[in-house]
């Protein structure tokens, strides 16, 4: 087993060179950090009221940087890896919650981040569990489009950054996103109506 400090830096380098295995290992390192952060947030807000992907990833970034003195030369890369982990953390959390609250259905986990100058809006809920399921189906059918969605939604990356991270073009990413969002919405709606 590698020591954490050397491990993460090396892994990051390997991953940048296209080694998917390194990405998975990195994600394993990230998971407990993010999970811990979610835990802190939840202890502060027992209702599970507020959780922001951007905030979460930012804090993880700072924490890793601080604790392990890893220099992430490219924030985009970090966010890309973090995206998958954020998705897992959130979905795990939601599953546990809904297991606790028997029959509570879709539990509102509010993703909110306050753009400066605007009051935070607390409210509408998105059925993240349904989205996760639909996204998993999409992964099987069209892994690349699914990854685009993951990076946008859970990593907060722009199309430009996604194109860079995925070694693709902005136009392709744009097409993939346009299709995926439409297809996912259709899938989610169907399951809603069907229930």
């Amino acid at each position: 087993m590698r020591s954490d400090q050397a491990g993460i830096t090396d892994l990051l380098a390997e991953w940048r060179e296209g080694d998917r295995r390194a990405e998975n290992e990195l994600a394993e390192h990230l998971y407990p950090v993010l999970r811990g952060l979610v835990g802190v947030q939840l202890r502060r807000a027992p209702s599970g009221l507020t959780l922001s992907a951007t905030e979460l990833v930012n804090e993880a970034y700072i924490r890793l940087e601080q604790q392990r003195e890893v220099e992430w030369r490219n924030r985009g890369h970090f966010f890309a890896i973090a995206a998958t982990v954020v998705r897992r953390v959130v979905i795990d959390y939601l599953r546990e919650r809904s297991a606790e609250k028997r029959g509570a259905g879709a539990i509102g986990l509010r993703w909110e981040d306050v753009p400066s100058g605007e009051q935070p809006a607390v409210g509408d809920q998105i059925d993240w569990l349904a989205l996760d399921q639909a996204l998993t189906r999409l992964q099987e059918l069209d892994a690349e489009s699914a990854r685009v969605v993951e990076l946008r939604l859970f990593g907060g990356l722009s199309n430009e950054s996604i194109a860079e991270v995925m070694s693709s073009s902005v136009a392709t990413v744009g097409r993939q996103w346009r299709f995926a969002r439409t297809w996912l919405a259709e899938q989610m709606d169907l399951s809603l109506d069907g229930s």
């Binding site: 951007t54 509408d124 998105i126 989205l131 946008r152 939604l153 995926a180 919405a185």
Partner: peptide
């Protein structure tokens, strides 16, 4: 759905919420 802007909204989960509101 595409024409009716009825897809998954653009952007971050954050702006997803904003868009929903």
């Amino acid at each position: 759905r595409e024409a009716g802007n009825d897809a998954l909204p653009e952007g971050l989960p954050v702006s997803l919420l904003a868009a929903a509101l």
